[in-house]
Design a protein around this nucleic acid. Structure first.
Lengths: 150, 150
DNA sequence: TAGGCTAATTACCTGAGCTAACTTTCATAT
DNA sequence: ATATGAAAGTTAGCTCAGGTAATTAGCCTA
């Protein structure tokens, strides 16, 4: 059986991880402001829409773990930018279906190239083994959040 | 010699890492709102002050990679909460020196226990080896940001 | 000692999260 | 058939945390 990790170590790791994430997230936000015109939040939502195909605002809010009014605002912004389309939901008159359009796809492709450049340029300075560590960390972070059911 | 990591892999890793960080950061912010009374940003600054001893607002802004007015506001908040003290800088009349006080140290200790609980409780469900991966990832994220000199 | 640089602050803008309250629509129970 | 309750979306209004521009006060140097 695997050795138990002492709680003090876990707290320490948690604390360091938290600070690293907060600061990196801030750096990402700043980077975004300069280049692309879309914030990390907006980019994440656009990517979610792209992955989902046709999706309701509520579902998006659930995916992004954000409350519905927040998603309403973000979608309004993406729509203003002309990156998404909305059609009425034929199955539910209260709802609408959101989809990415051609401009959105292009923007997303460009963003993936340019905006990941911030992290990618830094990843490029690391060993392949360190990149692998970060890649696995990304999966772990996502998995850690999965069993939240609030 | 180590195999070169192809750029497409780097972009992919960068993209996944970015989304994971953005979403985790959001989860942390929500968690913070409930419990402790201090946001992740405020916590990070208080921890920075604690590490630094006596430090000027400008230096803190540099450490946290934030503009000075932003730091002014955050410090005002920490001061209102009675967690830090300011003394005039004997060497420079324009500046002041910031230090954590006893209440700040206590709060920080409590925060480290309580606020890391969010991450710690999730870390607890992972294998020790996975925790180790995240621990190394935290170091790597910090190192990656270090060579920014804008 | 005049002029320019730097530290800090103030005022104001934006984005992104939240809750509360409202409208419209759906589903259901009577 | 209709009344009631739940759910989707929005609107309004709050907060925090970032930013820029402009101001004030102090430092330094030619």
């Amino acid at each position: 059986m695997a050795a138990r990790t002492p709680d003090t170590d876990l707290s320490d790791t948690a604390s360091r991880l938290r600070n690293a994430i907060v600061r990196t997230s801030r750096a990402l936000r700043q980077e975004a402001a300069g280049e692309s015109g879309l914030s990390p939040t907006q980019t994440a939502v656009l990517a979610s829409i792209s992955r989902s195909g046709l999706v309701t605002p509520s579902e998006l809010a659930r995916l992004e773990r954000v409350k519905r009014p927040t998603m309403t605002r973000t979608l309004a912004c993406l729509e203003r930018e002309g990156l998404i389309e909305r059609t009425p939901d034929p199955a539910d008159g209260r709802s609408s279906l959101v989809a990415i359009n051609e401009a959105g796809r292009e923007r997303l492709a460009r963003l993936r190239r340019r905006k990941s450049a911030y992290l990618a340029s830094r990843l490029r300075k690391l060993d392949p083994e360190e990149v692998e560590t970060l890649s696995r960390a990304a999966e772990l972070l996502d998995r850690m959040r999965e069993d939240e059911r609030p």
